[in-house]
């Protein structure tokens, strides 16, 4: 009897937040999907979208959209790979308790406190494509250091992998965060295990490979998902660095802005948003299921 009463009070307490989530998250997702299926025409009779699933077919077969998807793939691979690599490297260097650890930890974590839009303004200048006499930013730095061969056009080159350069500022920004996650993971492993391994004659490499790293895999997975979904949603960084309407650095999120505000085509923008949501869900949902299961198993 008392249990049932408690259950009702609890529901009453959380119902405002449930309602808000229903309306402002799932309601708006639904609205977005509905919009993406609409037919749209301008008053002068130009067809913007045929309606129904044809909208998606049109978007997916659009070479500009495919180019944006490719850019997103490159960006995500380099961004996730880079943050994981540097995050783990820094965590490894710091976890042994070097002098001034607190200082280094703050230094690495600090970039995360800066917003993408603010750091983007600086990176726009650092990654300027001008070379030789026109060089500014990083290219100028390389010239001054006597290493002209290192100059690059960065993200604004015609190559297929130009978006790898766009990942540099993103890595700078978030590698520290991944480091903090890993560092917390290392600290969570009790010292006894290391000593036990050493007593058993494990080398330092074997200790990490067989004792410590396996215990970090849930953390690595969380980091992967968090960084990966941030990469897929990235808009502000690219907008700040490349400006509006930059074809070479276009990803679905920036293309959506162009569709909505420049091409005046909210229907196609909604279709783009729906696909983006689906892509992110493909990455995030299995992770949620996995963590739910492991939590239940751990109970």
């Amino acid at each position: 009897m008392g249990r049932v009463k408690n259950w009702w009070t609890g529901l009453l307490m959380v119902s405002p937040s449930i309602l808000l989530v229903i309306v402002f998250v799932y309601g708006l997702i639904g609205q977005n999907v509905a919009t993406s299926l609409e037919a749209a025409k301008t008053r002068s009779g130009r067809v913007l979208a045929e309606g129904g699933l044809a909208n998606y077919v049109e978007l997916l077969t659009w070479d500009r959209y495919q180019h944006a998807l490719w850019n997103l793939l490159i960006l995500t691979l380099v961004f996730v790979g880079g943050t994981m690599f540097f995050g783990l490297l820094w965590a490894l260097l710091l976890e042994k308790g070097v002098p001034g650890e607190g200082f280094f930890r703050s230094v690495y974590l600090f970039p995360m406190a800066v917003s993408f839009i603010a750091s983007g303004v600086v990176w726009r200048w650092l990654l300027d494509p001008g070379m030789g006499e026109q060089a500014i930013g990083l290219n100028k730095l390389f010239l001054m250091m006597g290493m002209p061969a290192l100059q690059s056009t960065w993200w604004s080159s015609a190559g297929k992998f130009n978006m790898a350069a766009m990942a540099i500022p993103a890595i700078w920004q978030l590698a520290g965060y991944v480091m903090a996650l890993f560092l917390a993971g290392f600290r969570g492993i009790s010292e006894d295990q290391r000593e036990a391994a050493r007593v058993d004659g494990a080398t330092e490499f074997q200790l990490y490979r067989h004792v410590l790293f396996p215990q970090l895999s849930p953390i690595a997975l969380s980091a992967l998902i968090i960084v990966g979904h941030m990469s897929m949603k990235t808009f502000d960084l690219i907008y700040a660095i490349a400006g509006q309407n930059s074809y070479v650095s276009e990803v679905p999120a920036t293309l959506m802005w162009v569709q909505l505000f420049s091409l005046n085509n909210p229907v196609q923008a909604a279709a783009n948003a729906t696909i983006l949501l689906a892509v992110i869900a493909v990455a995030v949902v299995p992770y949620l299921i996995y963590t739910n299961r492991t939590e239940r198993a751990g109970r």
Binding site: V107, Y108, F110, P111, V114, A118, S119, V121, V122, W172
Partner: peptide, 8 residues
């Protein structure tokens, strides 16, 4: 890294 942060 610190310098770049200040620039930001």
């Amino acid at each position: 890294v610190g310098l770049a942060g200040m620039l930001a």
